[in-house]
Design a protein around this nucleic acid. Structure first.
Lengths: 133, 133, 133, 133
DNA sequence: GTGGTCTAGACCACC
DNA sequence: GTGGTCTAGACCACG
């Protein structure tokens, strides 16, 4: 039942063009994977060193992301063993999920209307959107 | 025909919770207003001092935003007179506009799908979205 | 009304013999100073660099302490300006204070009774205790 | 006269929330039991395996605790027979006991006064203290 | 092997 | 000047 992220089909990736710090990008992606249910309680995150190699960044940066997530209660670490998704009260998780969705929608709509587009035009753009890759 | 931002009904606002630097928030909002046609060539921006008072931030921050916008060609400063929206080649503007729209849509969809939602659920959320007061 | 820590007569100090990480010692001392009312909302903490010089440790270690305190809501940072004690809802603060006191007492009594001493002997020891000067 | 820890009514327990390593928690509890006279020379400690099962931790961790206690002279291992509390020079034991008591009192008073409490308030808290179940 | 702490030093963003 | 991010590398603690 418990798996690694790769076994769950989750790939972390960094975009250095956005200016968002690497450690925050990692936190957000892990948190989203947990909130959406892609990562489940008990699942193990990649080790700091392996993820550092994979993302081609310094291990300290991963360690910082993992450390902040531990403080935030997003993950639990067992030194000598690894970093895991903890058990969480599900209602609390749902709250946080809708909160993040609301914020994403509100931010998008603010941007869209500042750019002079209507709600229907936004819908049109999303329908036309094709993910790369 | 030429007006101030207030006369055009445009209010700049800062959100300190996002972590996005103030000067970037200002630049983006001004740029979006121009791109969407809410601000028109010849329109005048608020003075650094008045905007600093209104937004309750350091005048240096406004000055930096205006300075960078001038470098980007988004605004033009006439010493002793103020800061204005310059004439711009329209094709260039459209390019920049669609670029910003594309980036907004792609960013939104990346976040939405990371949170486990489908394209149709995103459309639903946008249809339901009502801006606050 | 707002002061620096030195003006409030608060000195941070590190003890490397305990094995407690430097950054945690700093966090605890700052938190205790706030909880006990020695540091008040609006007070400014030493700059990272000055405290690093004073404590003779690496600035990154101070930065880590300040960063974690920011995450915990113990302090608020304004880049370019400094690190400050934020306004806090007083009831929440009081809760946290009694919690810490309770934990200190319970931990002390557990240790004391494991060492074979009675409650009255503990009281006696405290009465006899003289702080080093 | 010689007994096992269980027969003496001594239960080891681990608290993972404190951050204190398991092996240190074990050492401290055993040492305190000896210093306070609850464990007597000749008493037998649980086997590594049985304690590992009881505390639900890795046997290596128990082995490390026992190994360090042996180095410290707190226990003596007789291969094939078990781990025992050795005879100790009594003055040495008393010295170590008062040292630990002093450190406990000093640490408690440092924390208490950092939290803004007086010596008399500390005494009051201890008098009011009731151990749980 | 795992993660945790600290140092050293670079470069950036902001005021 | 302020704090923030990242790299590089050492050493420790834990299982």
């Amino acid at each position: 039942m418990n798996s690694t992220m790769k076994e769950r089909g989750i790939e972390l990736s960094l975009d250095e063009s956005t200016g968002v710090p690497f450690y925050r990008q990692i936190i957000r992606q892990v948190e989203n994977a947990i909130l959406s249910g892609k990562l489940k309680p008990g699942d193990r995150l990649p080790t700091i060193r392996s993820l550092a190699v994979e993302l081609k960044i310094n291990p300290n940066t991963i360690a910082r992301a993992y450390g902040e997530m531990e403080l935030l209660g997003i993950v639990a670490t067992q030194v000598g063993s690894g970093t895991y998704v903890p058990e969480k009260k599900p209602e609390l998780k749902d709250e946080r999920l809708s909160e993040k969705i609301e914020r994403a929608v509100a931010g998008f709509m603010r941007e869209i209307s500042a750019l002079g587009l209507s709600k229907e035009e936004a819908v049109q753009l999303i329908r036309e959107f094709e993910e790369e890759g």
